[in-house]
Amino acid sequence: MVNLGYIPQERKIPAPDLSYMRLFEDGETGWQYRGQYAIWMGHSNDPAKKHTLLERIGNRVARIEDKQGKTVFHKIGNGMAFSIENLMGFWLSFDTDQLWLDVKDGDHAYAVLSVGGAAGKPGEAVVDWMCPKCGTSIAPASLKIEPLAFSSFLAKVNAWVEKFNTDQSMRICSGCGYAHPATAVMPLGKSATTPVQPTES
């Protein structure tokens, strides 16, 4: 059989990406950028490792959780800086809305973040840190998210985190002089719910 070069013979013929399903507890698949959304899921049965959403309001922090443990379904608005405890030690904001689902069932806690909804978004994000003493933004970086390249964006975020961790001057708060500790990089790929601890220089 002659291969005319469009589809290598040894490879499966490409097919359109169809609908798919994921269990909330399946954190092994990490971040997925499929179709029009980037989606992350986390699961924990250890209260100390629960994924809790934080939002930055002015120079203060709001913990987005129900005090009675009821399920929370919440919109993180376009441009809102947020962080997720036990996933990321930094803050992110996207140029599109995100939806956060926080479910507690007995000892199990599940969290789902979906980013997207608008055509061509997310296209840009800001990553930074927040001074835990005075709330000033530290070391902000604006990052482009190229079409179909969300995984490259995540790698760029982690590269910025590693730079932050190794360059102590980047971690000094311009507001109060506090030295922010080094932070975990975001876990990617398999086992993507356990943060990788920093190696501080």
Partner: peptide, 18 residues
Amino acid sequence: IVPRIPFSAHITRAGTPH
């Protein structure tokens, strides 16, 4: 048939009749 499994997310892709 698309199952609705508890604690799951199902994504129906654009263009898929459902």
